Simulated scan of single mutants.
Amino acid sequence: MTANEDQEMELEALRSIYEGDESFKEISPVSFQFRIGDVEDTKAFILDITWPETYPETTPQISLGGYFNKKISPETKQQILSKLDEQIEMNLGTAMMYTLFEWAKENQEALMENHKPVVTAVTMPSSEINTSSTGKKREKKEQLTKSQKRRIVSRTDHKGELPRGWNWFDVIKVGASYLFSTRWCSY
C-alpha cells in the first residue's frame, strides 16, 4: 500500500472511532487535535498532530504550542514531546494515531508529573490604579456614533422632544380581523 492509501484508511478509522468525541478534532485530512484530560483539568493539554506526505513511514509532526497549552511550562512540554517521540519510534511504519492518543490518555499523570502551572502577571494601566486608589469612580459616558445621533435628531423636533403620538399604534378593523399600523407602542 502507498502512504496515501494508509493515510486514507487511518483517517476513516479515526473518524469512526472518535465520532462524537469532544476530545478529537479533525482540522484537515492530515491535521488533528487531541485533548488529553477534561477541559477543567489543570493537567489537560492538546496535541496538535500533522501528517507529512510520507506518513506513516515518517514521523508525524507533534506540537504543544496551542493557546490551550499556555499554562504548561516549556520544560514539561519538552518532556511530553520526548516521551511521545519514544512511542512514535516504536510504532513507525504503522497507523499510530489511535495508539498515541490512548497512550497519552493512560499516561497523562506521568506526562504531567513535574507540571507547575505557568502564572502570567496581570498589569493594570496607571489610570485605573489612580482612580481605584482615590476611591472615586469615573462615570463612563455613552458614546453614540454619527448615524445614531442623526437618527435621534430626525425623530425629534428642534427642542429635542419627540412628537406627540410617536409611540402610538392604530388599530384598523377590516372584516373580522384587525390590522395594526407600522407605528408600535413602546410599552
Rank of each mutant, 00 (worst) to 15 (best):
P74A: 06
E53K: 15
K136D: 12
W51N: 10
T99N: 11
T58H: 03
K105N: 14
K149W: 08
M90N: 09
D41R: 06
T94D: 10
I36H: 01
T94N: 10
S28Y: 00
I129W: 00
K77I: 02
V30G: 01
W103T: 03
Y67N: 10
F32R: 12
Y55T: 06
I72H: 00
K146F: 01
P29I: 09
Y55G: 04
E139V: 14
A110G: 11
M124I: 14
A110M: 12
T42Q: 10
S147Y: 00
E102F: 04
E89R: 07
I88V: 10
M112D: 03
E139W: 05
K141Y: 06
L92W: 01
Q143K: 15
Q33H: 15
S82E: 12
N69W: 01
M112R: 02
W51E: 11
L111H: 00
F34N: 12
E86A: 09
E128Q: 14
K137N: 13
E57S: 13
E102S: 07
E53L: 13
N69I: 06
I46H: 03
Q61G: 14
I27D: 11
H115V: 04
T54P: 09
I152R: 13
T58S: 08
T134A: 05
K146D: 15
A44E: 07
E86P: 04
P56M: 03
L111V: 06
M97Y: 05
I62A: 03
D38E: 15
M97N: 14
E113F: 02
W103A: 05
V39N: 12
H115A: 05
S63C: 10
E106F: 01
T94C: 04
K116P: 03
P29K: 11
T120N: 10
L47M: 15
I62Y: 04
E53G: 09
T123A: 11
K83V: 05
P29C: 07
D85N: 09
M90C: 05
L92P: 03
Q108V: 02
A121F: 12
W51G: 02
F101Y: 15
W51M: 14
L111W: 02
K140A: 13
T58R: 06
I49K: 06
M97H: 12
A104R: 02
D85V: 03
L84F: 01
T42I: 11
N130P: 08
I62W: 06
G93V: 01
V118Q: 08
S133C: 04
V119A: 08
P74L: 05
F45E: 04
F101C: 09
V118C: 03
E142M: 15
